[in-house]
Design a protein around this nucleic acid. Structure first.
Lengths: 342, 342
DNA sequence: TTGTAGGCGTTATCAG
DNA sequence: CTGATAACGCCTACAA
């Protein structure tokens, strides 16, 4: 492969001039640039990014840590991140953790190893380095695109899960439901807690009482939504609506109801959260909260770019909260059009 | 940040020994290794991957080119790729092309620029470099995890789309269907053609005639499946079953049927292709062909590792064909239990 | 506007 | 088993 020296020789200039022509063309005479570009085309030159990176101490990679990409929710985030990364000559390195803290820590160490310049978290875990910063040297650029405890001082982007869930419950209450169940995420996760709190807030605002037996925990997966719905149905407590902590579980719940021959929304209303594409095409189409997943990814990457700026022009770490909105489809309706069979 | 020199000094050895201790410990006296490891822990040393890469002319990155990651089908591939990449100390760089050839070419040039060591294609396009290899120098390592014209000599992994589609049609024919429609992918894409051919093959084997008016093209998206189903329904031609070229479109078709009040499978049977998770929880659950997407990704990455081996120990480029299997759920059944309404 | 030269942190060769 | 040292290809003062 041709290198910068070859180009310099062929173009009859010094390597410095070639380098400048490539990075700051304004400093080079147009005629010279022409000669250089001709040489580049001739020799099929491609700058060696490893060498440039070593010199600049920059890899131009961001590592995105996700529990799993096999999941429409996280992959939309990643798409957003990639969008703005690409526009800023950066690349996205995928780090799949499967929820393993050790894996996450290994990814975090890639920053010290110059494989990546920073990390975006779509995770529920937090790498150790955030809490135990190295004695000398500062914490590497880390951006959170996920719910974390509020006391954590990290640039972050999220939606208002609390209000969004309260909104869904409010919608159900307005329709006339008074016994509203919920299917939650894993109770250990911060985001699940947040959404559960939103559910409670919605109940309180509608002057409905919180009933522990109407809470069925899931793990955000289709199957867990199905299972939770079955538990709710068999639990004996009456309810006419279910607010699910995400669309996947809502879709699973829908499937369980259909399996039992319970009509939605006539007998039970179901609402989801996230606005997956699939929700618009379920039977019946799913009422949900639109979560601007792609935009969250884009905002996260922008925060990352900020964090990567030289220290003297770095804006203060901030929190971006993106707007959500209720999408009413046919899976929710007024209660009691028909009696429950069981 | 501490570098290898610091470690050498603190451990009282030369940099060469530190390097060896890290990469080929068998060549270093255990006691020496101990001292070195102590120093590494002390100084919190992390090898600079950029420097190592420059020296070895390796980035240890693979770039995965996909039209979009926001798609359960491709993201499962990526998950598989990441699995074996990680196990082999390589990283996955995401390249989203949105179907744009220029973007794909730019990603391909990252190999020459040492940002990546090779490329895995989940694309319908082909980078120019494959057809116009540079005068001197060989074609960079490229693996295809997607259908391409058979004359292309690329390491590749795929399933037998032809037989798989014929299998679905055979299943429908066995149930007694004689008028079987199909919803295809974009007709320009090789994979769509392949699956359409499989549909025709299935018909021929069942001694059913191919009927052009029963072919509705889509673009693999939910909405296009919905629209294609509507066109089929309004087209006037009678049919009792639809074989869709992927699950997304099948789910869209299901939604259209439900919207029209047409019962599945009593009035129309619907089959998909890919075995998305969502298909198992639709109403009714979707009959489909299981495509081992994660395994395809894993196999593709293994082929990539082969291609990255030094020339003298490189196995010949090969094609891996992974097995598929029919999954019968409730969206297909015997025809004519009920009359069509329209 | 251009050139010279030092150094980024490793690995690998060669010599002990 | 260990050490000295020459690359790897580029960027960026500094000098002209």
């Amino acid at each position: 492969m041709a290198n910068i020296k070859d180009i310099a020789r062929v173009a009859g200039v010094s390597v410095a001039t070639v380098s400048r022509a490539l990075s700051t063309p304004s400093l080079v005479r147009p005629k010279t640039i022409e000669r250089i570009e001709a040489a580049i085309a001739d020799l099929n030159y491609e700058p060696n990014h490893l060498a440039a990176g070593l010199r600049r101490q920059r890899s131009d990679n961001v590592i995105v840590a996700v529990p799993s990409i096999h999941n429409p929710f996280t992959s939309a985030f990643v798409e957003g991140i990639e969008n703005v990364a690409r526009a800023n000559r950066m690349r996205v390195l995928l780090g799949i953790t499967e929820g393993d803290l050790e894996a996450l820590n290994k990814y975090a160490s890639m920053i010290a190893g110059k494989q990546a310049d920073g990390m975006i978290l779509l995770e529920t875990n937090l790498p150790d380095i955030v809490n135990n910063p190295p004695a000398q040297g500062k914490v590497p650029p880390i951006v959170a695109a996920c719910e974390y405890p509020p006391e954590l001082r990290l640039p972050r982007v999220r939606i208002d899960n609390l209000e969004a869930c309260a909104l869904v419950v409010g919608h159900l209450a307005e329709l006339g439901h008074t016994a509203i169940a919920t299917i939650t995420g894993p109770i250990g996760q911060y985001m699940s807690q947040d959404r559960l709190s939103g559910y409670k807030l919605g109940l309180a605002r509608a002057r409905l009482e919180f009933n522990e037996t109407l809470v069925a925990p899931g793990d955000f997966s289709l199957q867990s939504g199905y299972d939770a719905m079955v538990r709710l149905l068999d639990g004996g407590a009456e309810f006419t609506a279910v607010a699910c902590a995400n669309d996947e579980m809502a879709l699973g719940a829908l499937s369980a109801l259909q399996h039992r021959g319970i009509s939605v929304p006539d007998e039970v209303s179901v609402a989801g959260f996230d606005d997956l594409r699939f929700g618009a095409f379920s039977s019946p189409p799913l009422t949900t909260v639109h979560s601007p997943t792609v935009e969250i990814g884009e905002a996260a990457m922008r925060l990352m770019l900020d964090a990567l700026l030289p220290a003297d022009q770095q804006p203060p770490a901030r929190e971006v909260i993106l707007p959500h909105r209720l999408i009413v489809r046919q899976s929710t309706g007024a209660p009691g059009k028909r009696r429950r069979k069981g």
